[in-house]
Computed example of a mutant assay.
Amino acid sequence: MRILICDDDALIIEQLQKYIRNFFENISVKCPELVCFSDGESLLADKGEKDILFLDIEMPGMNGIYVGKELKKKNDKIIIFIVTSYSEYLDDAMRFHVFRYLSKPLAKQRFFRNMKDAVDLYNTMTVKIPVETKQGVHTLPASSVIAVKAQGRKVTVHTTLCDFESIHNMQYWLELLPKNRFFQTHRSFIINLEHVTDFDRNLVHMSDNQSAYLTKRKYSAFKEAYLLYLESTR
């Protein structure tokens, strides 16, 4: 993981660095690489990985809205925190799907809560899983799995790449897949919340024209899980 800070206020950069280091100390994890920039031009010129970014809006030269949009074009998985004193930029920031909007001065406990959500999201997007078939083992990002479907004894893993016939049963997949991103809508279906397009009381529709049955008794729990997922990705 690589975390970036872009702000023209040296005191804010210092505070963010302190909070980020404190956060990782509290969860007993080594702090990832931290890289700081004082303007958007320098950030855009950076060639390294950009996983989590704390971005100011009002800076000399390019403003944060423009910089954020450019970074999202290059990598739509980047997790962007907007850090600013100006709430009038909220609508513009939400248009390119920032993760959170943090107001200055920064509240430490709120920062920690949001940082936890960001790290959880990053881990989910980057975790890889083995899909074992009779032909061999394929390693894929968990995010590429659209759904797991059982038909009798046959278990099919639908992914954005292709379909795989798994040698494992549904219980195996329930235990393997990240709980905060996958939901069992029916005894024959486990779906990835990331790929849901819409749903009603009977069916969940997903990308690649996939759909899954949704039992009536699971409707409320599914709806709650899906709304929590959407909240965590804002």
Results as ranks from 00 to 15, higher is better:
Phe54Tyr: 01
Asn123Phe: 12
Lys218Asp: 06
Ile20Lys: 01
Ile78Glu: 02
Glu165Phe: 10
Val204Asp: 04
Leu4Lys: 02
Lys154Cys: 11
Asn123Asp: 10
Phe99Thr: 08
Leu44Trp: 00
Glu49Asn: 11
Asp7Phe: 04
Ser207Ala: 15
Leu230Gln: 08
Val131Glu: 00
Gln17Asp: 10
Ile65Met: 06
Leu214Val: 08
Asp117Met: 15
Ile20Val: 08
Arg21Asp: 15
Asn114Ser: 12
Arg95Gly: 05
Glu231Gln: 14
Gln15Gly: 09
Cys36Ala: 11
Val67Gln: 02
Ala212Gly: 10
Ile3Ser: 04
Cys36Val: 11
Ser42Asn: 10
His158Gln: 09
Thr84Gly: 03
Tyr101Val: 03
Ala107Glu: 15
Arg100Ala: 02
Phe164Arg: 01
Ile82Trp: 00
Asn63His: 06
Leu203Cys: 14
Pro130Lys: 09
Thr124Ala: 15
Lys50Trp: 06
Thr159Pro: 04
Phe54Ser: 00
Tyr89Asn: 09
Lys116Ile: 09
Ile65Gly: 02
Leu203Ala: 11
Val98Gly: 01
His205Asp: 07
Thr159Gly: 04
Asn192Cys: 12
Glu224Trp: 03
Glu132Thr: 12
Asp9Phe: 05
Leu214Thr: 05
Arg153Ala: 11
Cys6Leu: 01
Tyr86Thr: 10
Phe199Gly: 11
Gln135Tyr: 14
Val204Gly: 03
Lys218Pro: 01
Ile79Ser: 02
Phe164Met: 06
Val131Gln: 01
Ile12Ala: 08
Leu177Thr: 07
Lys50Asp: 05
Asn169Leu: 07
Ile5Met: 03
Met94Asp: 11
Phe182Ser: 05
Glu58Ala: 09
Met94Tyr: 13
Met1Trp: 02
Gly136Asn: 01
Asn22Ser: 14
Asp39His: 09
Leu71Met: 07
Arg187Met: 09
Asp51Gly: 05
His138Pro: 00
Asp7Arg: 07
Asn26Val: 10
Leu227Ser: 08
Met125Leu: 14
Trp173His: 03
Lys72Glu: 00
Tyr89His: 09
Val98Gln: 02
Gln184His: 06
Lys116Cys: 10
Val204Asn: 04
Arg95Cys: 07
Arg187Leu: 12
Leu230Val: 08
Arg110Leu: 15
Asp7Ala: 02
Val155Met: 02
Met59Ile: 03
Lys149Ser: 13
Leu177Ile: 08
Asn26Cys: 12
Asp120Gln: 10
His158Trp: 07
Phe23Gly: 04
Val119Ala: 06
Asn75Asp: 08
Leu174Gln: 15
Glu33Gln: 12
